[in-house]
């Protein structure tokens, strides 16, 4: 187990370097210039721009810039935003808490609603309620989140008036519920389907028959014997899903005007703020890797047949 964790942690190093390099190169390849973007429509002396670029180190070859960035990174310095002159670390620290809150809400919603719907449908496969769930989830899966987002916004904010269309700058928990539901809808549909299939399959297993033959109450047969087996694949999906949710949601945050990581990365891309984009992506890669490691370890806890050496 210890060796397995160590190996997985070591594997993170190449993934980490590879992903930062990739994002770095992509930012470099993008047309546009962060320094010129500062000036907007105004005419600026090219010599001045060259001067600022030299100060920022942007005139150096790409590989030198990258090494410089990595070097700073290992000293805990994520760089500075060109436009605001604020340290990237501070900018991320400002935006991240709200994304985390949104992710937690969405995750809770995914787990509670997704698993419950999946169980309800899976216990009676091929029944009307099963088919309606499959239909509903199909709609959710095929609907882009901006369509759902605007629909929800239109219905609850403009028609019913029970919610505000946009969240405030320091959103309260209740304000985040609506965006969280929109954000969760896609994973909710997947979780519901996954649970449904897993439950419908396991309910016919021999050990379920044994559990009934033992004279256990139905509550226990379903709650312990069926669920412990059926939730294994669902937990795996949820693990990667929470990694993805933590990465912020550009579209959902955009619709509800939430100043989270998704918005931040979107704005930074527009302004060609390389350091900000690379910083955020790096952080998200780490979050994702840690989440998937935790899931893999949890997997072994849930299923004793799996052993890591």
């Amino acid at each position: 187990m210890g060796r397995y964790v160590a190996r997985r942690l070591l594997q993170m190093i190449p993934v980490f370097i590879g992903s930062t390099l990739l994002v770095f190169l992509m930012m470099y390849a993008l047309p546009g210039d962060p320094v010129r973007a500062l000036a907007g429509e105004q005419h600026v002396d090219p010599a001045q721009i060259a001067q600022i670029k030299a100060d920022l180190g942007l005139d150096q070859p790409i590989w030198q810039q990258y090494l410089q960035y990595l070097g700073n990174l290992f000293q805990g310095d994520l760089g500075t935003q060109i436009g605001t002159k604020r340290p990237v670390a501070d900018v991320i620290a400002d935006a991240y808490p709200i994304t985390v809150r949104l992710a937690i809400f969405a995750f809770i919603f995914t787990v509670v609603a997704g698993i419950s719907l999946g169980i309800v449908a899976g216990l009676k496969a091929e029944s009307l309620r099963d088919r309606s769930l499959l239909g509903l989830t199909l709609v959710l899966i095929s609907m882009p989140s901006f369509v759902l987002g605007f629909l929800v916004q239109h219905l609850f904010a403009f028609q019913l008036g029970i919610a505000k269309p946009n969240v405030s700058l320091e959103p309260t928990n209740s304000e985040l519920i609506m965006p969280a539901i929109v954000l969760a809808s896609l994973s909710l549909a997947y979780v519901a389907r996954l649970t449904r299939t897993s439950v419908a399959e396991n309910i016919r297993a021999d050990y379920m028959r044994t559990a009934v033959a033992k004279g256990l109450p139905r509550r226990r047969v379903i709650g312990v014997h069926l669920m412990r087996n059926s939730l294994i694949p669902v937990v795996t999906f949820l693990g990667t899903d929470i990694g993805a949710l933590m990465g912020g949601a550009i579209v959902t945050e955009g619709i509800f005007n939430i100043k989270g990581v998704g918005q931040l990365v979107f704005e930074a891309l527009g302004k060609r703020e390389g350091a900000t984009v690379v910083g955020i992506v790096t952080l998200l890669v780490i979050v994702y890797l840690v989440c998937s490691l935790l899931v893999d370890l949890l997997y072994a806890v849930l299923d004793p047949r799996i052993r890591y050496a």
């Binding site: 021999d206 050990y207 044994t210 033959a213 033992k214 014997h225 412990r228 299923d303 004793p304």
Partner: peptide, 16 residues
């Protein structure tokens, strides 16, 4: 009480 044929599949794999 009942004893089933295939004990591997008749016992719950994830419970001790």
């Amino acid at each position: 009480a009942m004893i089933f044929q295939d004990a591997l599949s008749s016992l719950n794999p994830v419970l001790s």
